[in-house]
Design a protein around this nucleic acid. Sequence first.
RNA 1: CGGGCCGUAGUAUACCGGUAGUACGUCUGCUUUGGGAGCAGAUAGACCGAGUUCGAUUCUCGGCGGCCCGACCA
Length: 413
Amino acid sequence: MRQSQLFTRTRREAPKDEEAKNAQLLIRAGFVHKELAGVYTYLPLGLKTLTNINRIIREEMNAIGGQEIVMTALQDKQVWEKTDRWDDAKVDNWFKTEFKSGGETGLGITHEEPITRMMSEHIASYRDLPVYAYQFQTKFRNELRAKSGIMRGKEFLMKDLYSFSKDEEEHQAFFAKAREAYLKVFQRCGIGAETYVTFASGGIFSAFSEEFQTLSDAGEDTIYVDEEKRLAVNKEVMTDENLATLGLSREKLVEKKAIEAGNIFSLGTRFSEPLGLTFMDEKGENKPVVMGSYGIGPTRLMGIIAEALSDEKGLVWPEEVAPFTYHLVSLAGSDGDLQKIADELYADLVSEGKTVLYDDRDARAGEKFADADLIGLPHRIVVGKEALASGKLEVVNRRTGEVSMVLKEELFK
RNA sequence: CGGGCCGUAGUAUACCGGUAGUACGUCUGCUUUGGGAGCAGAUAGACCGAGUUCGAUUCUCGGCGGCCCGACCA
């Protein structure tokens, strides 16, 4: 798209009420707008980025058999009472309100309860299993303290997948596939090298849950990393007994700060039993379904990427995540010939199916370069006097800063 | 929820018990045009309420809002 048409503006300075690097950069570059503490609007560039992250996650969830749905934000308290997760004394971050017609509701903090109840309409026999359903849905959590920019909000997007299996064996097979799918997501989002499968507190039906922790100074968690095995242990479960269970030795572990990018849980029958989600097995016996839940926060992931890959000049987006692949910067000014070359190049790139942000604004070179660095698209193509003189284009890699002069034809290869 | 700090143009900041200045931005014009240009002019501001006071943006109290540390984070 033409940058002159983009309604958002970049800023030189970050607002003083943001300290987190991700929010400072994303606001300065015009990706997000803060509406309230911990509540952010996604602007055109931010939404494109988020959509790309969602696409990556969606592809990987579909690849392991996930079927996409969307559940409601408004919750039926009765189903939550059955699992004892409605009482404010048990779960303290509900946003609750009342229906005018009477009765109470709350905005969904997660969706194990409603999906488990709903599945009882669709699962009756072992022939119906396994089932994997997921959604991208806005969660609401009444956090006492929002912090860390878009990484810990009160309203945020979550991809949550729920698995329904006939027994523990079938569950474990899927759990392993989900782990691999998650690792692919983080790889494609450019933070694969910094992200570790991390053992964390699990709950009632499993010794551990598995978190995906991305190393970051902005992280809220302390983890202990075994670099060789590419595994880590969350500080919250760091005991000698657990290390023995996991086959990790204390000497090889290094303490790091990290941020949780995803978390997968084995739920056993924690939800299927109280909510009556059972199936008839091959022997005609009624059994509770074995469940798992698998969460990634795409908005948080966007914040993590912004945090982890940015530099002093601004954001640095990996190819698959970037809102546009190319930033075409025209330095034509009032030079009609140069202008024409830039316009043609833009049209050609678009017709080739490339995504391009075309800086056609009447602005000085310095401002355009600074903005391009801040926005952080992977490749910057500069059309200026040098391009006209040599017949070549200047292509700059945002991440490495590497500059190459290429002929137009080479660019399209 | 415990503790701390803070609310002044769109943004960032100053000063002041006597109605506010600077920079960036924005708008006009001219010059400029490869790393946030120059000149001239213009635009725009005290979170809300109560109290003290001749007078409050300034002091006091309350509310609302924001940030940070801790706690919490299925």
